[in-house]
Amino acid sequence: MDKVIIAKDLSLSYSNSETIINKVNFSVDSGSFVFITGASGSGKSTLLKSLFGALKPKQGSLVVGGVELVGISCSKLNFLRRHIGIVFQDYKLVKEWSIDKNIMLPLIINGYVKSVAQSQVDKLLKHVRLNHQVGKYPLELSGGEQQRVAMARALAHNPVLILADEPTGNLDEYSSDLIWKLLEGANKQLNTTVIVVTHNIPQTLNVEYKHFHIEYGSIHEVN
C-alpha cells in the first residue's frame, strides 16, 4: 500500500526551545484513518503542524504525499497544501467572509470555475446541514456550526489528506457526531487519508483506524 506520510528520525522544536518530538519514525498508509493521542503538551499538535509545513523539521526527514518537507520551497509547499484539508479546534474561518465564501476558499485557490465552485458549496452546505444559514457570517453561528463550516471547507476540494486538530474539542454532541460522520464518510467513500489529533477516540466510530500515542517526545503505535 502507498505511504502518504513517511517520517524518518524526525525531530521537531520551536525556534530556540527544547526538542518536542525527538527522532521519531512512523508512516501512514494512503486511505487510512489515524488517531494521534497524547497528554496536553506532549507534541500532538506540533506534529500535525509539521505535516502541513507550518513547522519545519529540525532534523530527519518528513515526506508528505511524496514531497520532502525538509528544505521545501514556498511554491512547492503551496502546491502540497492545495491537496490537504485542515480542520482546527478554533475553526480558523475568515470572519469578514460569509460562510459560503469560506467554504469556497480552497476551490478558488485550486482554480475552480465560479459556477462549479458555487454548486459544490451548495452541496457541502446541505451535507453539513447548514443550507438554511447561507450568506451568514461565522460570528453569527454557534461553535458547532462554525466547525461544520470548517469541515465543509476541508472537504470542498476533495483532498487526498485531511488533518484535524481536536476537531470536536468544544462541540455539543450533535455537532461532534456530525463531524465524526463526515470524517468517516470522506475516508470510506473517497478513500481520503484522515489524521486526527484528539484526547478521546470516539467509541461510535465505524471505521478501522490506526492509533499513535505520543509520550516524552517519542511516538508509538497502540494496538
Partner: peptide, 13 residues
C-alpha cells in the same frame, strides 16, 4: 489572520 488562513490552503502570495 486572513492571509494565514489562505496560506493554510496553499494560496500563492
Amino acid at each position: 489572520e486572513r492571509m494565514n488562513i489562505m496560506g493554510l490552503f496553499g494560496a500563492a502570495l
